[in-house]
Each structure stands twice: as C-alpha cells, then as structure tokens.
Amino acid sequence: MYSCFADVERLCAERGIEPVQLFVENEMRLTGRTEREVYDRMDARLTIMEDAANRALSGPLGSVGGLIDGLAQAQWRYAQGARTLCGAFLNRVMARALSCSEVNASMGRICAAPTAGSCGILPAVLLTMQEQYALPRRSVLDALLTASGFGAVVMKNATVAGAEGGCQAECGVAGAMAAAAAVQLRGGSLAQMLSAFSLVLVNCMGLVCDPVAGLVQVPCAQRNASQAVGALLAADMALSGQLFPIPADQVVEAMARVGRQLPIELKETAQGGIAATRRGREIAREILHRERA
C-alpha cells in the first residue's frame, strides 16, 4: 500500500493505473464500501460544494462581524465586465471561492476541504473548470477523489491544521490538492500533478494563519480566492512541462517543518500578522463590543 507520494508513483507505474483508481481501491478496502458507494458519497459532497460556491454570488448572507459580506457578489459582477486584468475565468474562480467563505462565515452548510477555513478552494477550481470546459460530472468526481487522495498523504505525513502549520497547511494544501485535480482534468500525467501540487506549496511556504478578531473571515476568504488562482497557475506551469526539481514528499516535509518553526502568534491565535495590526485589533474590539451588547 502507500503512505507517501513516492509509493503512489511506484504503485501507479507498476500497475499502469491512474492515481484515482489507487485511491478509490484503498477507500473500498478501508471502509468496505463498493466503488459505487464511494462515488455516490463524494457526489453528495460535490452537491454541497456547488451550493456553497454559488449561494453568495447573488448577494451577501450576513455573518458574525460581517467583514466579508458581499465580496463574492462584487467579484462575480466584476467578472462579467470587460475591465478585468485576469479575464472572466479567473475572476469567476475567485468569486466562487469567496462565496464558499461567505457561506461558511454565515453559519451555512459547507464541505470542509480539507478544513472549513479553506473550503472554497477546491469547489472554486473544479466547478469553474467544469463550467469553462463543459466537463462531465464523472470527471469532476474523479478529480475530487484524486485531490482527496493527495490531501490524505499530507494529513498522514504533515498537517492541514492552521493551528499547527499556519495557513500554508490549510489554504496552501487545499490549493495544492486543487492544482493536482486541475492537471488531471486537463489530461496531465501523475508527474505533472505532483509538480503542480508542489508548486502551490512552494509558492506559499511560510504563509501564516492570522485571522482578524479570530474569525474565519479576513484574510481567510481572500486567501481562498488567491490560493484557488494559485492552484491554476501552478497547474499551467506543470502542464507546460515544468517538473519541480524537489520531490513532493520532501516539499510536504519542508512545509511541515516550516509550520513547526512558526511561532504560536502566527498559528490561528489572532496574535500576529494581519490580526495584530492596529486596525485589526480595533476591528476585534468593535465586533466583540457589538456582539456582547
């Protein structure tokens, strides 16, 4: 069986199979579910993701503190205009990531991927690619299962908790998972998936977790949007043929090590980074005062 990416590469090469088959077979062995049951279960999660990725596009939902209310709608409207720098596609990706974050912040239903704070990244990438390229649902499910398999390797060998590894471990890993999924959806190889996965982690290595007022809003929502875009940039780099020179297992190891080196102030405690700015602390006091009033 496998416990690291080197194992995944070896097993897929030996058997001439795609990683998704390896991951689904492992799931069947582990849980006793049939292939159909595994796909149906993931299908239900994809439906939750679709709802969260689209719900806030039409208007704000109202969250505690309200720091990110309306961001998704504004980004979605902007995406339809002619003035974007990055085009409609990337702007729609960002809008959907923001929508998930808004749903999460307003006590709506989301699917953690791999955490609640990073729940917008996979849906934004997968669903906007599905829309852009008219992909069948089965392909999107395969990509989601592949992303999950990649995430499992990180959870086993490192961490996906912001309190342990900072934002690089949460939104960073979500972006890395999404990058691998995006490469698969474009027909790339496992080597390219691993390269894209590594590139995302490398490009945000050391990113801290510094939520203003301790709320999962700022800068979490913005980082969902940026990591979703970062996943697509990494996928494009990998698909162009760029194979990152450091193996994915070692990149994950480096991410985990950097996470351990981060001081506690920069790991979800709202004591550092953006949370500890003068305005960040003011916002925290204002919200606390309002909520307790």
Partner: peptide, 23 residues
C-alpha cells in the same frame, strides 16, 4: 493509507469552524 478520502474532503458541516461549531 489508513485515512479515508472523506476525512480529507469532509465533514459536511455548518460553518465556520469544525472544532468550535461542528464539534
């Protein structure tokens, strides 16, 4: 691999925090 794919993509939950809200 002894981790389920559904422990990675999941749980389905009410936000904003898996530990502070769902838990």
């Amino acid at each position: 691999m002894e981790l389920s794919l559904f422990d990675v993509v999941g749980p389905v939950m009410i936000g904003p925090s898996s530990s502070h809200t769902a838990g």
